[in-house]
Design a protein around this nucleic acid. Structure first.
Length: 431
DNA sequence: TCTGGGGTCCTAGGACCC
DNA sequence: TCTGGGGTCCTAGGACCC
């Protein structure tokens, strides 16, 4: 039982993938976008990060700079939405809780994807549950999803592509026999395989590997020699043997906040204030995770697309004597780092702050030479108060070093929809 | 004029030690 | 002038993901 023509299907994964997620979210609250060519833009309305089927069919690629499609928007052939990550996160958790109720175990992989573990169930039963979920998520949240079912995560990804691409599957596709596996691999270009990105796919195509089937037909030793550990893992997964098994760790290992500026900036104080904002945001995320950081990195970027201007991408690393998560300490470390790398003869386009070397906030190792322990405790308490006041994403309280608005203030979002699923903005807009 | 943001893992190579 | 070899640890950078 559960061995289908030599494909072991005792372990089965169902990958649930929300179709064109950000676009689908916008459509939940603006049904008039249904059937239209729609794109969602990144911060600053910089480039395209999500596309509806209609805009994909027009040939618009992921990551296209917005100015290249602006004419279509003006001509009324394309609708653009500025991104609204708060709303997407909210709809995502609604989808995930429906999925979590239906199966014994779920691994949330990203904002729009989750693996459901269906071990020990018959393929028919798994498909039944999956079809119910497709209908339920559509009806209760309004988001269309596709589900791919297979004995490994890499194969489940491929199955979900088929489920999404061919309407005949009605949203659910399973790879549960050797015959289906080989058929699916032969129809999958190597560049579409999970774990094979642009660089690798070019290298593979040069070696005559066009499809996933070409890849699995190479000997293991050849794969190991050319593509090392990562390549062997993909090779085994495509053959039906589970390798990508580890659950994602609950806590992140680093936290980063970075933004491009609407234009280029040289002024020291203006950039420092933004760096302070990013650092404050990192500190807030640290506290949400109940973590503390030992290292703070600050990065500056000039505009990499301007060949005519001098380029400068410095990074400063600051070690903290004791792991910290309070806003004052993280901001002050970031500003110290900034001072060591800032130079007034460049035009900057972007900056970022990363906190890393994270430890659990309860397990912070007090340093023997921590003479500042009282000050630290006061700062920690102040940060707690700031979190309570700022709860809900509205930065009413901030340090003097920060800018006089939210850390996302000043970024362009000309096509923003209202924040339907969250509260305060709605109140302000109605008033 | 205009070109995203936030993560993870792996590997190569240097530093260091014996 | 000659100038080992092998192990470990750390970091920077590259590749990937969504």
């Amino acid at each position: 039982m559960f061995i289908s023509d030599l494909l072991d299907i005792r372990i089965m994964y169902a990958l649930v993938d929300c179709n064109n997620f950000f676009v689908s979210c916008e459509r939940v609250f603006r049904p008039q976008l249904e059937g239209k060519a729609v794109v969602v833009l990144s911060n600053n309305d910089g480039c395209v990060v999500a596309r509806s089927n209609e805009s994909k069919a027009m040939g618009i690629k992921m990551g296209t700079p917005f100015y290249q499609v602006r004419d279509m928007v003006k001509a009324g052939r394309l609708i653009a939405c500025s991104s609204n990550y708060t709303m997407y996160g909210d709809l995502s958790s609604r989808v995930m809780s429906i999925l979590a109720e239906a199966v014994p175990r779920i691994e949330i992989y990203s904002i729009d994807e989750a693996f459901l573990c269906m071990d020990g169930m018959s393929p028919e039963k798994i498909e039944g549950i999956s079809r119910e979920l497709v209908a339920k998520v559509r009806k209760w949240v309004g988001i269309p999803v596709s589900i791919g079912i297979a004995p490994t995560k890499t194969l489940a990804k491929i199955a979900s592509h088929f489920a999404k691409k061919y309407p005949g599957y009605r949203g659910v596709c399973r790879i549960d026999s050797e015959e289906k596996r080989l058929k699916a691999l032969s129809l999958t270009p190597i560049r579409e395989v999970w774990g094979v990105g642009r660089k690798l796919s070019v290298s593979m195509e040069q070696k005559g590997i066009r499809t996933a089937l070409d890849y699995v037909q190479r000997p293991e030793e050849w794969i190991r020699k050319n593509y090392m550990l990562h390549g062997v893992r993909t090779w085994l997964e495509l053959r039906g043997q589970v390798c990508v098994e580890e659950e994602l760790p609950e806590k992140r290992k680093s936290i980063c906040t970075s933004r491009s500026f609407p234009g280029m900036i040289t002024d020291r104080a203006e950039i420092a204030a933004r760096v302070a904002d990013f650092a404050a945001k990192c500190a807030q995320k640290l506290r949400e995770e109940h973590s503390a950081a030992l290292q703070v990195d600050v990065v500056l970027y000039t505009n990499r697309f301007r060949d005519d201007l001098p380029q400068y991408f410095p990074c400063a690393s600051v070690r903290l004597p004791v792991a910290a998560s309070n806003t004052q300490e993280i901001v002050s470390a970031a500003l110290n780092g900034f001072d060591t790398i800032y130079r007034s003869d460049y035009q900057y386009k972007k900056a970022g702050v990363t906190v890393s070397d994270l430890v659990d906030a309860d397990a912070v190792q007090a340093s023997l030479f921590d003479y500042d322990i009282d000050r630290r405790r006061k700062q920690d308490r102040l940060s707690e108060v700031m979190d309570r006041v700022n709860a809900g994403g509205h930065n009413l309280v901030r340090l003097a070093a920060q800018r006089s608005g939210d850390y996302t203030d000043g970024i362009r979002s000309d096509y923003r929809s209202r924040r339907y699923s969250t509260s305060l903005d709605e109140v302000i807009e109605i008033r």
